[in-house]
């Protein structure tokens, strides 16, 4: 074994320099996957930069006042346009939708994971996961054909309203919240629950004192993810909310959101006009909000105990 090679340690068969083919193969693979990963970064930066640039231009090139834009209403496509009504509309739809979807979704998740375990996980969970994938235009269509007439005939108003928007979006994010919450509750180690039952606690006491506190950060994440989806939803909302450019005075009034106005106005504005530029600023608000939601989710999930 110990033969002539011994002295030539810089030309040994085990050195990399003598095995270039495997190195080349490895290098090519690494380059390929790295490039793909970098494309993800490039896409993100490109979106942020281009939307930021187009959105900010409104305030520098067209001399629109940022304060005026954010705090006043009245949308006529000129320098004096204010987007407050739409910002309000987006937030209103998001919070109202979460207000009924969150308890319902988390309640259902608890039912699936703690009360009817077998049935819940074998049947309900797959069905809910499939419902997460139902396209939003379909929710919008149901809103138009079922919910809007229902409100018009039984509650009042035109039917196309904040209330309709909230219901449609709430139903849409319900499966999302339920499915993530159910996963979170299932992730709680069973010995924690067993300990509680072992101490003679009832199911409700266990849920209230053990399961909800332990899963709270993940449940919050589920709600925020649902809200992020609600905030960015365009077509389903646009189809039922009525798209009136003023502030709504009640739930039964028509309203508009950032997304619904972009959807409606974008095709009708000319490239380079003030009106067009204003729409990019609305888009920038959506982008900023999706960063905000990410930050909230990171903050919430950093408190996760399990």
């Amino acid at each position: 074994m110990a033969n002539a090679q011994k002295s030539e340690t810089n030309n040994h068969r085990l050195l990399k320099s003598n095995n270039s083919s495997s190195k080349k193969n490895e290098g090519r693979g690494k380059f390929l996957v790295f490039t793909s990963a970098v494309i993800v970064i490039i896409a993100t930066i490109a979106i942020t930069v281009f939307l930021g640039y187009k959105g900010i231009r409104t305030f520098f090139v067209y001399d629109v006042s940022l304060w005026n834009f954010l705090t006043t209403t009245g949308w006529d496509g000129t320098e004096n346009s204010g987007a407050f009504a739409f910002i309000f509309g987006s937030f209103a739809v998001t919070f109202l939708a979460a207000l009924f979807a969150a308890p319902l979704g988390i309640g259902s998740a608890i039912f699936m994971t703690e009360i009817a375990k077998k049935w819940g996980q074998k049947f309900l969970q797959p069905v809910i996961e499939i419902l997460v994938g139902i396209p939003s235009v379909v929710y919008g269509l149901i809103g138009v054909t079922v919910i809007v007439p229902l409100i018009r005939n039984h509650v009042g108003g035109l039917g196309f309203s904040l209330l309709a928007g909230m219901i449609v979006v709430g139903v849409m994010i319900l499966p999302t919240i339920t499915s993530i919450s159910a996963d979170a509750i299932k992730a709680i180690p069973s010995d924690i629950k067993d300990a509680s039952y072992g101490l003679g606690a009832t199911r409700w006491q266990t849920i209230y004192k053990v399961i909800i506190p332990a899963a709270l950060p993940s449940l919050m994440t589920a709600i925020v993810l649902g809200m992020a989806r609600a905030f960015g939803e365009a077509l389903a909302v646009q189809m039922v909310i009525g798209n009136v450019k003023g502030l709504p005075e009640s739930l039964l009034d028509s309203a508009a959101t950032l997304t619904s106005i972009i959807t409606l106005d974008m095709p009708h504005t000319t490239y380079g006009s003030v009106h067009n530029s204003l729409l990019w600023s609305l888009g920038l608000i959506l982008l900023i909000m999706s960063y905000v939601f990410i930050i909230i989710i990171r903050f919430v999930s950093s408190r996760r105990k399990i």
């Binding site: 993800v40 970064i41 993100t44 979106i47 281009f50 960015g232 997304t259 972009i262 982008l287 939601f293």
Partner: peptide, 20 residues
Amino acid sequence: VIRTSVEVLSSLPSIVVGMF
């Protein structure tokens, strides 16, 4: 940075992707 990018891209509203 890559992970954050994936997170940002996946949470972008689709209308924003459309505008881009």
